[in-house]
């Protein structure tokens, strides 16, 4: 089932299905490797539950929940 990245819990894995943001934000998210088909893992969240840190393409990326809303994923069941 398709969810936004915000709804994925720490430690879980997911596959990116689409990045709905346009303009600069969308472009930056894609440049940082969030393209459809990419597997990501939620590493954790900052002290106030925002931003979130994720692992993809062998590196760690952090972004705010506001940006995470643009990223639609399919959860990978463990």
């Amino acid at each position: 089932m398709q969810k936004s990245l915000r709804q994925i819990a720490s430690g879980e894995k997911a596959i990116v299905t689409s990045v709905t943001a346009e303009g600069d934000v969308g472009r930056r998210l894609r440049e940082m490797g969030l393209s459809p088909g990419t597997e990501i893992k939620i590493l954790g969240r900052a002290p106030l539950k925002d931003p979130v840190s994720i692992r993809l393409k062998n590196y760690t990326l952090t972004l705010r929940n506001n940006e995470a809303d643009f990223i639609l994923v399919n959860k990978v069941e463990a």
């Binding site: 934000v25 840190s53 590196y59 952090t62 705010r64 940006e67």
Partner: peptide
């Protein structure tokens, strides 16, 4: 503005 940052090793 958005916050999208790499955490380097």
């Amino acid at each position: 503005t958005p916050f999208i940052m790499e955490l380097p090793p």
